[in-house]
Structures are given as C-alpha cells and as structure tokens.
C-alpha cells in the first residue's frame, strides 16, 4: 500500500529500551561482574552463611517440653451433605395425635399434594418426640425444624406451617415466587418495627435477599410464628437452639414461643440481621383472628389460609375450615 506521505513521526518518543529485561532485578554492571568472579561468589556465600547461622542460633523458640497428650481427637466420619443438594423446601407441620384423625388426614394430604407438585418434602412430627419437659406443646415447632434439618440435610429451606393453616393456592412454588433473592428483596418490609405498633427495634433496611435466613410475618399483635421459613445452615442451628433454650421456656412468656421469639429478635443483632418480614398474606393470611390491618386477611389466591387458635379451647378446626375445604375440593376437580 502506498501513502502520499510517509507516516508521521510520533511526538512522544517511545521509551528507551530498558537495558535489563523488565521483571529482572537491575544489578549494576560492576556488581554483576563481581558476582561472576570466584571471590565475589565466596563473599555472597559467606554473608548468607552468617545470616543463616544467626537465624539458626536465635532459634524458632523452644516448644513446650510437656506435650500432655490428653486429646488426640481426629476427624470424625460424618457425611457432610451440601446445602442445596436436597429438596428446595421441606414443609414441617407438628401434628397433635389427639386431634380428630379425619382432620389430621386432610391436613397431611393438603401438605403432601403441595409438596408433590413442586418437588418438596413433608415432615409431620408429634410434640411427644421432643424433650419439652413442662413447657407448652407449642414449643415443639422449634426442635421439629431442627429435626427436619437433620433428616434432610441437603434441603435449602424449611417451611414451618401450623396445623391450623391450609395451603389454599398450591400452584405457588414457594422457593421461586417468595424465596428467590430478588423476589424476597422486593417483598420484604425494611425499617419496620419488629413488634407492631411501636417497637424501637426495626428491621434492617440494607439486607440482601441471599443473606436472609429467616422469613416471617406479622399479624396485628406481633410476629406470627405460625408460618415461617428458615434457610438451612449453621445459622439455623444457632437460632433454633437459642430460641429453644430452657431459660426462655421456663420464663413464663405470656405467649410462650411467640414472645420468646420477639425477645431474641429484638435483643440479638445476629438474629435481627437475618430476619426479613414479608407482608402477611404472602405466607400467613388469616381467615379468622387478629390479622394485620393492611394485608393480613385471606383473599382468594393467597398461598395460605390460617385459622390461628382453632385447635385450642373448645374450637373445632374441621368445622371452621369447612367452607375452605370445599373450595379446595372444587378447585381440585
């Protein structure tokens, strides 16, 4: 190719070629020549020897003379299952064996159908399996979740759902439509008082969805641990064990585990930092009872309809839920 004019010379001259290749240590030529001579090599060797000697003499410190062998523990052969390799969600419902067996069957079916549809697992323990001692049976949900983690160590989430609640919209897959980080970030209520109307402790406002380990809702009175999700992991063990501490169970909190939960959430930052509060109808819409004013009552299409307290006193869950069972059965057909 021919140009009219030869290419212009640059206004900035290229740097002088380095004498040494870049990356090598620049040794002055005189010194390098010295290093090439025998005397120079001897000198360098001598200096190195002196430093080596000093280092050897100064010593790395005496180790203890008495190594009392008391332990000698070795790695235990416990199969370690990575979180995320199992089912995405395990649905846990503690079932009181003294309740109406027909109702229990229906509740079980309700969970199992939902789980089958999305590839989840279910777990239905009874309170008598756990060392509750004299504390109310409602505490059994805490060890039940721990139990589910032990049974499904590879699961990602545990969803605890009270026996009083029905899954009304089984087409909603929990792990993608609620628990996926971006979805969760859009749902969670940040900077809101943990206990409604005026707790000074508020949820953090700068949390990321993938750092959330505990998703719960609020009803009118406060936190509603009748339906909540916990991410499987070390934090879950810490949280559940702290919650289940006998010191809280023996304290006579008015509402047992609910108030204990409100207490630990408000007093311990490592727990509050993992908490996300989502609108009540996402996880725990109330068909009856003290629902949150803004978004607590059940509307068609909500995932869950809860009848809090229907298993207590002289109430009958089966009867109260009758209309909802019918809707479910019609939907099924």
């Amino acid at each position: 190719m021919h140009f009219a004019m030869p290419p212009r010379k640059t206004s900035r001259p290229p740097p002088y070629a380095a004498r040494n290749q870049s990356g090598r240590i620049a040794i002055p030529p005189a010194l390098r020549n010295l290093l090439r001579t025998r005397a120079g090599q001897l000198l360098v060797a001598g200096v190195t020897c002196v430093f080596l000697l000093i280092w050897l003499l100064s010593g790395g410190g005496t180790s203890s003379t008495r190594a009392a062998k008391v332990g000698g523990w070795t790695a235990a052969s416990i199969p370690k299952v990575a979180v995320g390799t199992g089912p995405p969600v395990v649905v846990v419902t503690v079932i009181d064996p003294q309740a109406d067996p027909a109702w229990i069957d229906k509740i079980r079916n309700n969970r199992e159908e939902y789980a089958k549809r999305h590839g989840y697992q279910t777990f239905f323990p009874t309170p008598s399996q756990y060392p509750l001692k004299s504390s109310p049976t409602s505490w059994s949900r805490v060890p039940a979740i721990r139990h589910a983690i032990a049974l499904y160590p590879g699961c990602t989430f545990i969803w605890y759902l009270d026996a009083t609640a029905l899954i009304m919209n089984p087409s909603i897959p929990l792990h993608t439509s609620v628990l996926a980080p971006p979805k969760l970030e859009s749902l969670m209520i940040s900077n809101a008082p943990v206990v409604p109307p005026d707790s000074v402790i508020k949820t953090f406002s700068n949390l990321k969805g993938d750092r959330i380990d505990f998703i719960v809702t609020q009803d009118k009175d406060g936190l509603a641990p009748s339906s909540f999700v916990i991410r499987n992991g070390e934090w879950a063990k810490f949280f559940l064990d702290a919650w289940f501490d006998p010191i809280y169970r023996s304290y006579n909190f008015q509402k047992a585990e609910t108030h204990a939960l409100e207490h630990i959430v408000q007093w311990h930052g490592t727990i509050l930092a993992k908490l996300a509060i989502v609108p009540q109808n996402i996880l725990n819409a109330y068909a009856s009872g003290p629902a949150s004013d803004t978004n607590g009552s059940f509307n068609e299409g909500d995932l869950v309809a809860n009848f809090p307290g229907c298993d207590r006193d002289a109430r009958d869950c089966f009867k109260e839920q009758h209309a909802y069972w019918e809707i479910l059965e019609q939907g099924g057909k």
Binding site: S63, A67, A68, K69, V70, G71, G72, W73, T74
Partner: peptide, 8 residues
C-alpha cells in the same frame, strides 16, 4: 499440637 493438647 492442638489435637494432642486439647480434648473435645
């Protein structure tokens, strides 16, 4: 020597 001087 943590395995030897401690016990779990």
């Amino acid at each position: 020597q943590i395995r030897d001087v401690t016990y779990r």
